[in-house]
């Protein structure tokens, strides 16, 4: 899922200061599951904003709504009337949702309430960890399912570097060294020989470095 952190209230407050009628929109998918921008968090932010508005005489009128997915037009379109009535819209979705709502209703400004951080998973109660960086050329077959791009601090393809410390990354003692994990996993599966070969220089064209990516699938086009 896509994981995000809610922005600090001070930053949100500053963004909203020029406006009166505010539509706050949550998203019911990833960002809701990571407990950042679903219906519940929309409610919490709305109450915070109402208190600030009273205390600081901001005069904000807050309307709340949460849709199933902000990355799909069919879920956004029913919000038309609420968009029309608002001075500004604040999205609690990931960056995709913020942008797509503004694309569907270009006459309105859509502000982000969330810092979108990574593609990850909920490894334990209250803990999410990064797993993929969307590099466009997956090597998980070579590392038996542990991503060196997203999980090694230096994105090494021939690790581990000399900085691994007791299985942790040199960058942070709370971070597992991805290459230490890869080594142990290959060992468990009797496939250490897979490390013998030098993983050669790769192309980054498939990632963001080839410019923004798009896909057209003809079979889905009619």
């Amino acid at each position: 899922m896509i994981v995000g952190d809610r922005k600090p209230i001070e930053e949100i407050k500053e963004m909203l200061t020029p406006y009166k009628k505010i539509l706050l929109v949550g998203c019911g998918t990833c960002i809701s599951v990571c407990m950042t921008g679903g219906e519940k968090e929309v409610g919490i932010l709305a109450s915070e904003l109402r208190i600030i508005s009273d205390l600081e005489k901001k005069g904000w009128e807050i309307t709340e709504d949460t849709i199933q997915r902000q990355c799909e037009r069919e879920y956004i379109e029913p919000l038309k009337e609420k968009f029309d009535q608002a001075d500004v819209v604040m999205s609690m979705a990931c960056g995709v949702g913020v942008q797509y709502m503004a694309e569907v209703f270009p006459h309105k400004i859509v502000l982000p309430a969330v810092n979108t951080t990574f593609y990850g998973t909920n490894v334990a109660e209250g803990e999410w960890q990064e797993r993929c960086a969307g590099c466009g050329d997956c090597v998980l077959d070579k590392t038996l399912g542990i991503c060196p791009v997203a999980r090694c601090s230096k994105g090494l393809f021939n690790g581990p570097c000399g900085g691994t410390d007791k299985g942790k990354c040199e960058v942070n003692k709370d971070l597992d060294c991805a290459w230490y994990l890869i080594y142990n996993r290959l060992k468990e599966h009797g496939k250490l020989d897979m490390l013998d070969e030098v993983m050669s220089i790769r192309s980054w064209k498939s990632s963001l470095h080839g410019g923004p990516r798009k896909r057209v699938r003809e079979e889905a086009q009619k």
Binding site: S153, K154, L156, E170, M199
Partner: peptide, 26 residues
């Protein structure tokens, strides 16, 4: 490969790591 930038005096820098040290040797 180089020490990670977070150790130094420009910890907010973006790193590169286009290739790794072994790929550099090659």
């Amino acid at each position: 490969s180089g020490d990670h930038q977070t150790f130094g005096n420009q910890p907010d820098a973006k790193n590169v790591f286009d290739i790794d040290s072994i790929q550099l040797i090659d």
